[in-house]
Design a binder for these strands. Structure first.
Length: 275
DNA sequence: ATGCGGACCTGTTAGC
DNA sequence: TGCTAACAGGTCCGCA
């Protein structure tokens, strides 16, 4: 499941292959994704040069001449640069064939992803307009976080995952950052102290940045689609380790559900708040 | 406005 | 062994 570091890694890897390339045509094999792929996708993008690749949260933005392709990988989506003669497999939804050699192939078995087209500034697109700040930007500070959490009673973990305050913090990185910050995932957000907020901001940035660094090392492999996601290379302290010993205190890690998400934490290192 | 639960979808794993 | 059921994941939507 691609999180922000994976999306960033994929984007960086694609730049040398597709920036300034021209779209010859696109082929839709299966338009069913989270929203249907626009029927007229081909007429929207054919013949246009890819002018810019960027990212907003986990949304990839391919700016063409008359509009922008918005691509989300959901949880099982992949975007690979392949030779034109690569045979299509079961869950290959779309090919974007370039006039030079090669094509971009979108694959998504679980269909949680999206491919959309907008002729407007993507920043005002309904999917992007309400997103929180980029976690690795200078806008993401303890002051900002505290301003956002001060009147919210919701648990801190689902709140930082919701994407309204900060984007790109999925279940894995939320759990890891909270562990490294010593903050209980259930802590009501309004009780977050400034010191905790500082720590949390720093740890979110640390785990994401480290993961991007790791992703970079497998960059050349991803083109063949067998590159390991960054978080596999990353040492995970809590995610997926419920019941196993805490790497710090050796007590068994606790698993709970929070906002319908499995959540692992150390009850000793991330003590609960008692009112 | 806030916050919660439901929906989407299917490959993988656990349990019978 | 073969089947079924639960689970995982990100994000939007609708209802209280």
């Amino acid at each position: 499941m691609p999180e922000l570091p994976e999306v960033e890694t994929i984007l960086r890897g694609l730049v040398p292959y597709i920036l300034w390339a021209k779209v010859d045509q696109s082929i839709i094999r299966c338009k069913k994704l989270r929203w249907p792929i626009p029927e007229d996708l081909n007429s929207c993008i054919a013949g246009q040069t890819i002018l810019e690749l960027s990212r907003r949260g986990k949304y990839m933005l391919f700016r063409l001449e008359t509009g922008t392709l918005i691509i989300h990988l959901g949880m099982s989506g992949r975007l690979c640069f392949l030779n034109n003669d690569e045979p299509a497999k079961k869950h290959d939804h779309v090919d974007i064939i370039l006039t030079q050699n090669g094509m971009l192939r979108y694959t998504d078995p679980r269909r949680f992803g999206a491919i959309l087209w907008t002729t407007e500034n993507p920043a005002i697109h309904p999917l992007l307009s309400a997103l929180g700040v980029e976690p690795l930007s200078e806008d993401f500070t303890a002051e900002y976080l505290l301003r956002c959490t001060s009147n919210r009673r919701m648990a801190i973990k689902p709140l930082i995952m919701a994407g309204k305050i900060v984007v790109g913090v999925g279940n894995i990185y939320a759990a890891e950052a909270l562990f490294l910050s010593g903050i209980n995932p259930s802590l009501p957000a309004n009780l977050l102290t400034y010191t905790q907020g500082e720590k949390l901001v720093a740890m979110i940035q640390q785990v994401l940045e480290f993961s991007i660094t790791q992703g970079g090392t497998t960059l050349k492999d991803f083109v063949n689609s067998d590159g390991l996601p960054g978080y596999f290379a990353q040492k995970l302290n809590v995610y997926g380790r419920g019941g196993l010993p805490c790497v710090v205190c050796t007590k068994a890690l606790t698993t709970c559900m929070l906002g319908q998400r499995s959540t692992v934490f150390c009850a000793h290192c991330q003590p609960e708040y008692y009112p």
